[in-house]
Amino acid sequence: MNIDKSQDRSEILATRLRQARELAGLSQGQVAKLLSMHRPTISQIEAGQRKVSAEELLRFSDLYDASPDYLLGRTPTTLEADDPRVRFAARELNKLKPEALEGLLKIIASFQEPSSGNKDSK
């Protein structure tokens, strides 16, 4: 029973490390070089076949600019400002022309639920 929880956490960590690497636009080889590791080690970690030490977790966290809690799957279901996906989206939005950004913001607003905190909707 504890094994299942440990496996779930390992899978979450492996998935989030892979996602963070991809969002950072880095290859496994580049990450390995930046962290002074071997590329197969990065592959094993991302496949959930190798455990990550606390020191390694902090190094990944620093490299991807993501909190250890995010990488470990300990964050709420909503995204925090320091989530690497939010940072990636912000970088991409920054590339848009003002009129395109306004149009996209209207589309995003249409996806929000009326009870999402908008005081004017009451």
Rank of each mutant, 00 (worst) to 15 (best):
A24G: 12
L34D: 09
D82M: 07
L34W: 09
D65E: 13
E99D: 12
M1F: 03
A109C: 05
A32P: 00
E113P: 02
A14G: 06
K122M: 04
R85K: 14
I3D: 10
L26A: 03
S121Y: 00
R16K: 14
P98R: 13
L101E: 03
R9L: 01
A20F: 05
L93A: 12
R87L: 10
A24F: 12
K122T: 12
P76V: 04
E102I: 06
D65A: 13
E56A: 11
A109N: 13
P40A: 05
D62E: 11
A14Q: 09
R16C: 00
S36P: 02
R87P: 03
A109Q: 13
K5S: 12
R85V: 08
L57Q: 08
E11M: 13
T78D: 09
T78R: 02
S110P: 02
D83T: 04
L13G: 02
L101D: 00
R91G: 10
L34G: 02
G29E: 15
S61G: 03
F88V: 05
S121I: 15
I108V: 10
K97P: 00
L34T: 03
M1R: 10
K33S: 11
A89T: 10
R59K: 15
A89L: 15
P76A: 06
L105M: 10
A100I: 06
D82V: 02
Q30D: 07
D8V: 11
L93G: 03
G48P: 05
D62H: 08
Q49G: 06
P68I: 02
L58M: 14
L23N: 04
L72A: 03
D62Y: 04
F111H: 12
Q30H: 13
Q112F: 02
G29N: 13
L13C: 06
R87Y: 04
